[in-house]
């Protein structure tokens, strides 16, 4: 089991395997995103309360999910980097942070756009948006720490501690923001939290979410590959690989 795992996590083998997977992942992601876009923007019915504007949720909700998911992924990778000293896990944690931050920024931007249409204001201190904003700061902190530490090993270990501290805090932050929100203003009524979604709205949403996920997989592998090349640039196998 451990032997299998360490072979799988060996950087040259991973580098080559990822190289074979990436084109497929791109293709699947493109297909899913296209289907989801058509389904969401064309096929899904107009919402009787919110009109066409609600369609932004086909981007907003998947990016908010991804913002959360990527942090969990980072924390998982950090934990295995920390406990078993798996180099590949260090690399995955490091390269996924900017992607997570990008999803978070997308969720914030689309949330703000939607607010502009619904409440004529670019920002509402709604519980979901505020949580996502704090999550965004957590990502920025992680990236700032990575950027500030030159030594890659130290950066990886420090980042792992920070990601694990962050992941314990996320539920607390989320809960405190919910609490704060119900106290200071009534819960907002929105399609985003509406459970009574019909099937022709739900399938494009899930397709988009899946598309986002596959896109993330592809992008993480691409970034991990270049990070591996940079880290191991003095190793024989990298030189062979590049000059082949």
């Amino acid at each position: 089991m451990i032997a299998f795992f360490s072979r799988w996590a060996s950087l040259p083998a991973f580098y080559r395997r990822a190289g074979r997977w990436i084109p497929w992942l791109w293709a699947v992601a493109a297909g899913l995103l296209m289907a989801g876009t058509v389904g969401g923007l064309v096929l899904a019915p107009v919402d009787y309360q919110q009109g066409e504007a609600y369609r932004i949720l086909f981007v907003h909700v998947p990016s908010a999910w991804m913002a959360m998911f990527v942090y969990m992924f980072m924390a998982g990778a950090s934990a295995s980097a920390f406990i078993w000293h798996v180099k590949l896990a260090e690399i995955l944690a490091r390269v996924s942070a900017p992607l997570g931050a990008a999803f978070t920024a997308l969720a914030l931007a689309t949330g703000s756009l939607w607010g502009a249409r619904m409440w004529n204001t670019w920002w509402v201190w709604d519980a979901r948006l505020t949580s996502v904003l704090l999550l965004f700061f957590l990502y920025l902190g992680f990236m700032a720490l990575q950027a500030a530490i030159e030594d890659r090993r130290r950066a990886a270990r420090a980042g792992a501690v920070l990601a694990l501290v962050g992941v314990v805090n996320i539920p607390i932050i989320h809960y405190s923001v919910e609490w704060w929100n119900t106290l200071h203003q009534g819960a907002t009524v929105s399609k985003f939290d509406n459970p009574s979604m019909t099937w022709d709205m739900l399938w494009p949403l899930l397709t988009m979410a899946l598309g986002f996920m596959v896109y993330f997989a592809a992008a993480v592998l691409v970034r991990a590959r270049s990070e591996i090349l940079e880290r191991e640039r003095h190793r024989r196998w990298v030189i062979d690989e590049v000059t082949r």
Partner: peptide, 17 residues
Amino acid sequence: LLISVLLLPLFAPVLVF
């Protein structure tokens, strides 16, 4: 400065409560 960037989101719940 980095300390502040790392900590402010973590401090949020204490502030809220």
